[in-house]
Structure formats: C-alpha cells, structure tokens
Design a protein around this nucleic acid. Structure first.
Lengths: 227, 227
DNA sequence: AATTCATTTGAACAACGCTAAGATAGCGCT
DNA sequence: AGCGCTATCTTAGCGTTGTTCAAATGAATT
C-alpha cells in the first residue's frame, strides 16, 4: 500500500529547525524524528485540530500503527513536539536577553520575544503548553543553569535584586512567565482589535501591556504575612 | 431504551448555580438546560477529557442525537456552558471589587477572585477560555457597562487614572486580564511547588505574584512611539 | 378527533486512538 | 555464507467519537 503521494518513502526533512540527524536508520530511516517533523508540518499547515496520530502517520508515509513502536501514546508524540518547541523558544529567549541595554530594556525584549514566538507559532505553542500542564514535568529545562529561566534571574540581579534572595528571584521570573503566557494567549483576540489598532499594531500593544504590568521592574518579595 | 440509571427521565437540577428555570417543557422538559447542567456535572466529576457529546447525552438520559435539536454543534453546547461560566465569574468579580479598601486593594482582591475561580473550577475555566478564543466573540459581556471589565476601569479611575483616556483605561484592564489569565493557568503547576510552599501556600503565592506584576498600579499609557 | 410539527430515537458513516497478530528486513552470531 | 533474532512495519479489528437522516413519538392546535 502506498502512504506517500510520491513513491519516495524516505526521510525528506525540509523543516527549518529540527534536532540534528542522529542517523539511526532501520526500515524507514529514523521514523521517530520523521514523525515529529511530520507533526510539526501538519501543525503549521492545518492547525492543532487536524493533529491526529493517523494524520501524522499519513503525512510521514507510514501505516497508522507504525508510530506506536516509537511512542507509547499520542501524548508522548506531542510531548516530543513540545520539547522541540521549548528548546526553540529557549534559544530565542537567550538571544533576546543578550541584546545590549539596561536590565529593564532586556526584560522587555525578553517578553516581546516570548510573546512573539507564541504569536508566530500559535499551534505549536498550544501543544507546548498542553504538554507542560499535563505532564507536570519539563523540569530538565527549568533546572538547567543555562536555561532562560535562570538568565531572567541573572538579569533581575543586574537590575538590583538581592542575589541571595532566591524566593524573590524565582518570584520575579515566574511572574514574568505568567504575564507573558497570558499576553501570548490573549494578545491576538478579536475583542481587543480596537485597542490594538489605537496603539498602532500588535508590537506596540504588547509593549504597552508590559509597561502596565511592569514585567521588568523587580522589587523585593513581600513577606508571606503582609498583604 | 433506557438512558438513565434510574428510571427517572426528568430534569433533576441539583447544581448550585444554574439559569432560572424557564419552564418550557416539551417531551423531556427543557432539554437545552438539562444538557448544559449535565455537561457541567460531567465536567466537575470526570474532567474535561470526558466531556463528549455522547457522554453529555448519556448523563442527561437521552439519545446521542437528541442534543442536535438544541445545539448546532458540540462547540455550541460548550459555548453555552462557557457563557454560564463567564456569568458566574463576572458575578464573583463584581462582588470582589465592591469590598471596601483602597482602589489598590480592590484590584488585588479582583485578581485573587479571578484566579481563585479558575483554580477552583479548572475544567470549567478551560472550557470558558477555549470558547472565548475559538468563537472570537463573547462581546455582549465586555460591552455591557455593568460588566466586571468596566468595573475595573472605574476602579482605575478611582485610583487616579484619567477618565477620558479610554486607551489607558482599557489597557490597564486588559493588562490585568492577561496577567490574571496567565496566573490562573500556571499557578497550580507542579514546577512551582517549592516556591509556593516557601511563600506559605497558594494564596500568598498569588498575592506575591500580583505584587511583582503591580497588577493594580495603573499608570498613564505610554505613547506608541517611545519604548 | 385529526392534524401538525417540534422533539426524540435508531441506525448508520467516517474518523479517531489503540491493540494484537502476522509479515518484513536488517543485525549479530556461528 | 547461512541462520536466527529482534526491531520495525503492516493489516485487521475493537470501541468510541461527532454528525447526519429517515422514521417514530407525542404535546399543542384546529
């Protein structure tokens, strides 16, 4: 039976950002990676609702049961897609935070980069967030000292935060993360069209929102008791 | 064929917050409302993944095709559920913002109420948000002068904002909304357990986050050009 | 009492996630 | 080289889902 439109049943990778070829080739040629690539292609072309396991297998040119030899679940395939996405986002954030300027300005660029990524790849971001919530995992990235999560805290220190106050540092990073996630998911809403237009487009809208939220202005954490 | 466990095939409403009985009874007795109630019961009992149209019909004691005479789609049923949820949340917010205290304190209570609602009804909040995003609608509530969205802006005015600067007012309200949504979706994450515990529980965690974000501190909107 | 018509049912279709059993093909071993 | 082993892939099938459609049901109107 033919699963591909062309007769070619090989790993034709045209995606821009994929993991480096690990070159394990059995019957198909590293179907594991081909499936993740197919999923991402499908995600960008047809949106998240079209992302069924069978459709991914179809896209990769294999039978509907083939993926089960590489992923336990549909969820596990999506988790692999999500991991690629988080890696991509992490690289983008690390680049954004290395731009010159004050810590204040760098935090803003960080937020713009985060939300921009999510807005440019909305379907991928949704898969990323879903996997993040459902798996209650992805700790490897947060735990890594080189992760953006830690770079943010470094920047907060440069902005004057106490480097020994880990609570305050994590709190600032998490607050920025929450706010960025909220903006990422809501900034494109039709309901805000008038406001977004009045501010001169989405980027200005985002920067104005971040100014409101003072996402970059770290201040010492309040003690748990006082409100 | 029997669709209910008991022989009773009638509208047994035990939910706490439902729309007032409109008492239109044909064969079943206002199946429209019974379906929404069944969906919400199912949502709380089994979670969002169990919320299939057939399961809702089963819960309501009717055949799988019955809902299609009251809702065009599964999406339309979920939209009805979502609308109930937004109404509930709006009432909660309006109550929270009427507590005494400074505008600052009231904005904080508003945020706590929003996030608290979402954390107490996570499945419902997910349906609400999904419907909000997919339908690109729900304008009736935002447009209503009595909605929480406008109460927030009133509070910003009390805090010193220019009542004629509609851009600044909407920006402040939207910023608070985005931040609240982000916290609502992320505050429960396992990844933040250590930080949450260090701050003495979820409520303190939330208040500390909001303090970081200065969700309540309105400041004049920046002109689109300056960053 | 007959008719009308919204309402509900039963059956069916395609697509989905997933499983089990068989076919295939590359690998290591003698 | 030949053999078997095992991972890989396919075929077929199960149960479930969303949705449609003709037939049946029954409350309300005439």
């Amino acid at each position: 039976m033919i699963y591909t439109a062309s007769g070619l049943r090989f790993n034709v990778t045209v995606m821009s950002e994929t993991s480096p070829p690990r070159a394990r080739a059995y019957h198909h040629g590293d179907l594991q990676r081909a499936l993740v690539d197919a999923a991402r292609a499908l995600l960008e072309r047809e949106g998240p609702s079209a992302l069924s396991l069978r459709a991914v297998a179809r896209e990769a040119g294999v039978s509907p049961a083939a993926p089960y030899h590489h992923f336990k679940d549909k969820a596990e395939l999506l988790a692999a897609v999500a991991r690629q996405g988080w890696d991509l986002l992490d690289h983008g954030l690390s680049a954004a935070i290395q731009t010159g300027g004050s810590p204040h300005a760098r935090m803003t660029e960080l937020g713009v980069a985060y939300v921009g990524f999510a807005r440019r790849n909305p379907a991928l971001y949704r898969v990323m967030y879903d996997s993040f919530r459902d798996k209650e995992a992805l700790p490897e990235r947060m735990g890594d000292e080189r992760s953006a999560f830690h770079r943010v805290q470094d920047t907060l220190v440069e902005a004057g935060a106490d480097p020994n106050d880990w609570i305050g540092l994590e709190l600032g990073a998490v607050a920025a993360w929450c706010a960025s996630h909220g903006m990422a998911e809501m900034a494109g809403f039709k309901q805000f069209d008038r406001l977004r237009d009045a501010l001169g487009g989405e980027e200005n809208f985002l920067r104005a929102l971040m100014d409101q939220l003072s996402i970059y202005a770290h201040r010492p954490a309040a003690a748990p008791e006082d409100k």
